[in-house]
Design a protein around this nucleic acid. Structure first.
Lengths: 158, 158
DNA sequence: CAGGATCCCTAAGGATACTG
DNA sequence: CAGTATCCTTAGGGATCCTG
């Protein structure tokens, strides 16, 4: 039982506020290949062919998905030049792309627990302990499902 | 620059370990409607028609997606009976479904920051502070992108 | 209320071949 | 290496109508 279930009465009001952030996010990066491309970007991949090979999708799909991720602001194309070669582009993470990490690693963690563990673990390099994705509040408390709520904040201009 | 980028040398070895957890997760719940159905489940929706109406998809899609979520173990069908009515099923969250929260709310938070804020906020009901989705280690440290690593643990039987 | 059936359209993505 | 172009298959999902 999650505490959010208490908000059903207000829920319909929120729809009126505008399209849900989850829906917008899924529209932008809601395909398997987009998620896997982001994963590869986190692993350090920057070259087109490496993306295609490591994700295991065709170049056509790679091209389409990378273009969308660039357009959505998660990656940027940056020119680089190897000696004797013409200038090419590589795909590097933006701040928005790095901010997307919790989504990808939350999926990783959920899959690991519920769909079979491959032995891979996220770790905190600073102290060596395993890392995971959690819901926490600004006061630093871990927020269990039954203490998670939703509120409609007064919006400040922007 | 993320620290994970140091792992590229080992990365190809991991592919051999088996299909990535992110990929498996996306195969199971990788559609926009599945995510939105989970969101509604967190808000407390349990009835078929309410899911269809609140998510804004057709009953055919609702039926297909809910069946997949039940099969994947995120929801269960539970019989209920209203006085004078025949017995029907409602869809309730399982533990695996509740465990999926970080994925959905991480998308919510990312969309809120990068695709336009609707004013909705996650809150910790216990203390009233805003809540968010973070990467933390077992020692309780918040893990910034440049301190997040990946390691291949020895797998223990199960 | 909780679907199933049918029809149709679009997006994702594989395979293959070609280009600068 | 970094794509583009073409062809084809499948899955997601809207619209509409029907059923217990």
């Amino acid at each position: 039982m999650t505490a959010l279930q208490g908000v059903l009465a207000e829920r319909d009001k929120w729809s009126a506020v505008g399209q849900c952030a989850i829906e917008k996010t899924m529209s932008v990066v809601g395909t398997k290949s987009a998620m896997l491309l982001m994963r590869e970007a986190y692993y350090g991949t920057t070259r087109f062919d490496d993306f295609a090979k490591r994700v295991g999708i065709t170049k056509a799909a790679t091209s389409a998905r990378l273009a969308e991720l660039v357009e959505a602001g998660l990656l940027t194309k940056q020119p680089y030049q190897e000696p004797g070669q013409r200038s090419r582009d590589e795909y590097v993470l933006t701040q928005a792309g790095t901010d997307f990490m919790p989504v990808v690693w939350a999926m990783f963690e959920w899959g690991r627990h519920h769909l079979g563990d491959t032995g891979l673990r996220l770790t905190h390099l600073g102290c060596g302990a395993d890392a995971t994705v959690e819901i926490r509040c600004a006061e630093g408390h871990e927020v269990p499902p039954d203490e998670l709520g939703m509120k409609l904040a007064r919006r400040r201009g922007r």
